[in-house]
Deep mutational scan, measured.
Amino acid sequence: SEIVKHAEEALERGEFVRIEHNGRVIEIRNEEALEELRRWVEK
């Protein structure tokens, strides 16, 4: 997914991403959060 790709690229640069999706906000700061995002987006 485009969202996950964006988050992965930001993590590689040492940045973090805040994503709003279906009214929820998730902050991607590490691999664990990235995995959570993947599960969340796939639903």
Rank of each mutant, 00 (worst) to 15 (best):
S1W: 15
S1Y: 14
S1D: 11
S1C: 15
S1T: 11
S1F: 13
E2A: 13
E2L: 13
E2Y: 09
I3C: 14
I3N: 04
I3S: 05
I3Q: 06
I3K: 12
I3D: 03
V4A: 03
V4N: 01
V4I: 14
V4C: 04
V4F: 08
V4D: 02
K5P: 01
K5F: 05
K5A: 08
K5I: 06
K5V: 05
K5E: 04
H6G: 08
H6R: 15
H6W: 15
H6Q: 14
H6I: 15
H6A: 14
H6K: 14
H6V: 12
A7V: 09
A7S: 03
A7P: 02
A7C: 10
E8Q: 14
E8G: 08
E8N: 06
E8M: 14
E8H: 09
E8S: 12
E9A: 13
E9C: 11
E9S: 09
E9Q: 12
E9L: 09
E9I: 09
E9M: 08
A10R: 06
A10Q: 06
A10P: 02
L11F: 11
L11T: 03
L11I: 08
L11N: 02
L11M: 07
L11G: 02
L11W: 11
E12L: 15
E12N: 15
E12F: 11
E12Q: 14
E12Y: 11
E12A: 15
E12W: 10
E12R: 15
R13I: 06
R13W: 01
R13F: 04
R13E: 06
R13S: 06
R13H: 07
R13M: 07
R13C: 12
G14D: 07
G14C: 13
G14K: 04
G14H: 05
G14M: 02
E15C: 14
E15K: 04
E15V: 03
E15S: 07
E15W: 05
F16V: 15
F16Y: 09
F16W: 09
F16L: 13
V17Q: 06
V17P: 14
V17N: 03
V17F: 08
V17I: 14
V17D: 05
V17A: 07
V17C: 14
V17E: 06
V17S: 04
R18I: 15
R18C: 15
R18Q: 13
R18H: 11
R18K: 14
I19P: 01
I19N: 00
I19C: 09
I19T: 02
I19E: 01
I19Y: 08
I19R: 00
I19S: 01
E20F: 11
E20V: 13
E20L: 11
E20C: 15
E20P: 01
H21A: 08
H21L: 15
H21R: 06
H21I: 15
H21Y: 15
H21Q: 05
N22A: 11
N22S: 08
N22E: 12
N22C: 15
G23I: 00
G23P: 00
G23A: 02
G23H: 06
G23W: 01
G23Y: 01
G23M: 02
G23L: 02
R24M: 13
R24Y: 12
R24F: 14
R24Q: 10
R24L: 13
R24N: 07
R24T: 09
R24H: 11
R24A: 07
V25M: 08
V25P: 01
V25W: 12
V25R: 04
V25T: 09
V25F: 10
V25C: 15
V25A: 05
V25N: 04
V25S: 07
I26Q: 02
I26P: 00
I26M: 08
I26T: 03
E27V: 12
E27A: 06
E27Q: 06
E27G: 01
E27S: 05
E27F: 10
E27D: 10
I28D: 00
I28C: 06
I28M: 03
I28T: 00
I28A: 01
I28W: 00
I28N: 00
R29N: 13
R29L: 12
R29Q: 08
R29S: 10
N30L: 04
N30K: 02
N30H: 06
N30T: 12
N30S: 11
N30F: 05
N30P: 03
E31A: 14
E31K: 15
E31D: 09
E31Y: 15
E31M: 14
E31C: 15
E31P: 11
E31I: 14
E32K: 11
E32C: 12
E32D: 11
E32R: 10
E32I: 09
E32F: 08
A33M: 13
A33T: 12
A33R: 05
A33H: 11
A33V: 05
A33E: 14
L34E: 03
L34I: 07
L34F: 02
L34A: 00
L34N: 00
L34T: 00
E35L: 06
E35P: 01
E35F: 01
E35T: 07
E36S: 08
E36D: 09
E36F: 08
E36H: 09
E36C: 13
E36Q: 11
E36P: 00
L37G: 00
L37P: 00
L37D: 00
L37N: 00
R38G: 02
R38H: 04
R38T: 03
R38M: 07
R38P: 02
R38C: 07
R38W: 02
R38A: 05
R39T: 06
R39A: 10
R39F: 07
R39H: 11
R39P: 00
R39Y: 07
W40H: 07
W40M: 10
W40Y: 07
W40V: 06
W40I: 10
W40T: 05
V41G: 02
V41N: 02
V41M: 11
E42N: 07
E42Q: 08
E42W: 03
E42C: 11
E42T: 09
E42S: 09
E42G: 08
E42L: 06
E42D: 10
E42H: 04
K43N: 12
K43I: 14
K43E: 14
K43R: 11
K43M: 14
K43H: 13
K43P: 07
K43A: 14
K43V: 13
K43Y: 14
K43L: 14
